[in-house]
Nucleic acid binder design. Sequence first.
RNA 1: GGAGAGGUGGCCGAGCGGUUGAUGGCUCCGGUCUUGAAAACCGGCAUACCCGAAAGGGUAUCGGGGGUUCGAAUCCCUCCCUCUCCGCCA
Length: 442
Amino acid sequence: MLDLGFVRANLGLVEKNLRDRKLNPTELLGHFRITDERRREAITRMENSKERRNRLSEQVGALKKSGENSDALTLEIRDLKGEIADLEQSANSYDNELRLLLSRLPNILRDEVPAGASEADNKVVKEWGERRRFDFEPKPHWEIGEALGILDLERAAKLSGARFAVYMGAGARLERALISFMLDMHTHKHGYTEVLPPFMVNSKSLFGTGNLPKFAEDLFRCSDADAEAASRGEYKDNDHWLIPTAEVPVTNLFRDEILEEARLPISFTAYTPCFRAEAGAAGKDTRGIIRQHQFQKVELVKFTRPEDSDVQHERLTRDAEEILEALGLPYRRVLLSTADTGFSSAKTYDLEVWLPGQNLYREISSCSNFDAFQARRANIRYRPSGPKAKPEFVHTLNGSGLAVGRTWLAILENYQQADGSVQLPEILRPYMGGTDKIAREP
RNA sequence: GGAGAGGUGGCCGAGCGGUUGAUGGCUCCGGUCUUGAAAACCGGCAUACCCGAAAGGGUAUCGGGGGUUCGAAUCCCUCCCUCUCCGCCA
C-alpha cells in the first residue's frame, strides 16, 4: 500500500505509474481527489462534534462533583449524540472508500524498470549455461515422465481434476530430493533460516502481502472465508485460505511487530505447497505440469532496512540462480517491464530455465523488491538506532528459490537420454540414495 | 469440544465508571559526574488521522466489534487469542 500523504502529494507520479503499468488511471484513481476531500471534511465535522460532547461531558462531571444540577447539559449531549452518529457514519464510509481505493493502487516502479506494453518488453539481463545439443529429438517432460512411470496425470485428474499431478516412485523422491537440496543450500551456504509455516492463512495476512483485495479470484478459500467481504475491504483474522505461496505466511510473521535494527537483514527460506486457482488461465499451459493448482516451492524472504533492499535484492536473486547453476540448468535472468511487474513489486527479476523438450525458456523463479509496500500493509517496522529512534517500515523482498515442480520437469527435459532414462545432476545423487539416473523399472 | 484464568504503551506491570494516553519499573535517547566506561542523578520518549504556514490544537486507540452511560481501560454482550485442567485425536 502506498502512503496516503504520498499519494495526495504525488498524484501525478501515481497516475504516471498506473499508465506505465498499462492500468487505467481513471478507473483506479478516478475520485481520489474528491473522496479525499470529502473524507477530510466529514472527519473534521465529526471530530468537532465529538470535541463539544467531550467538553460538555466534562462539565457534567464537574457539576455532579459539586452537587449541582446537570440535567440541561445532559439533554444537550443527548441531542448531540444523534448528530455524532450520523457524522460518524458518513466519515467512516468515506474513510473506507478511500482506504479501499488506496489498497488497490499498485506499488511505484523503480526508474530502472524498462517501459513496456507486455512481457515481450522484458529485458534479458543475463544468460547462463550452455544448452545441451541432443543427438535425438528431445521430448517434453510429460512424455518422459509418463514413459518412466514417475508422473501420472490421468489418475491425478481422477483424484482432483485438471491441473494436478501424482508423482510416483523415483518421481516422488526427486521432488523430495529437490526440496531438501534447495533448503540445505539456502540454509548452509546462503545464511537463511528455515521456516515451516502454516499452509492456510487468514485474510489479514493476504491483505498484508497484497493478495487481497485485488486477487481473491486467484486463491482457494475454505468455507469460513468470505471473498465478498474481502472485496469490501474487510479482513478477518479467523478465516482460512490456502496459501498461494510461502511468501504470505512468512512475510506476515512480523505483521504488527517492531524489529530491532541489529536483527536486520532477516533471511528466511520455506518449503510449502502452493495453491492457485489459476482463474483466467483457462486453456493456457494445459500440457504437463507447468501450471498446476498445487505445486511445491522453496521460497526466499528477506526483511531489510530501506537502504539495504537493493543490494539484498541482487543477493537474493543470486541465491536462487546458484541453485540452477548447481543443477547445471541453463537459464537467463529477465528484468520485468513496467507492464509485467506484479502489483506489490517495485522491481522484479524473473529467472527462466531452458526447456529443450519444448524449445523455450520458462519462468522458474520470480525475485521481487517490494520496498515498504507490503510492510505498510502488514505494519512491519523496525526501530533505527540513533537519536531519531522512531519506528520505520522495513523493506520486504522475496523470490522463489526455486519452484520445485518446474525444476523437476527442467531436469527431466535437460537430462533426458536417448533410451528414455534421465541422468541425475551430480549434486542431487546423495539425495537420491546414490543413484545416478532414473530409468524405467523392469 | 468442555471448564476456569487472562489479554493494558518497545518490554514488565498498576489501574477496575469521572480532566487517565493511562501510576511505577525496565529498555532506549539527551545531559551532569568521570581520563573513559559503569553506577548514581536530572530530563526526554506511543501511534494514526483531522485542522493549522507554523506554533499549536483536536479526535481515536488499554485484543477486535457492538452496547449501557452525560462520561468506560474500568460495567454488559459477542468474537478472537494465550495459559491451566478435562475430553478427543494424527
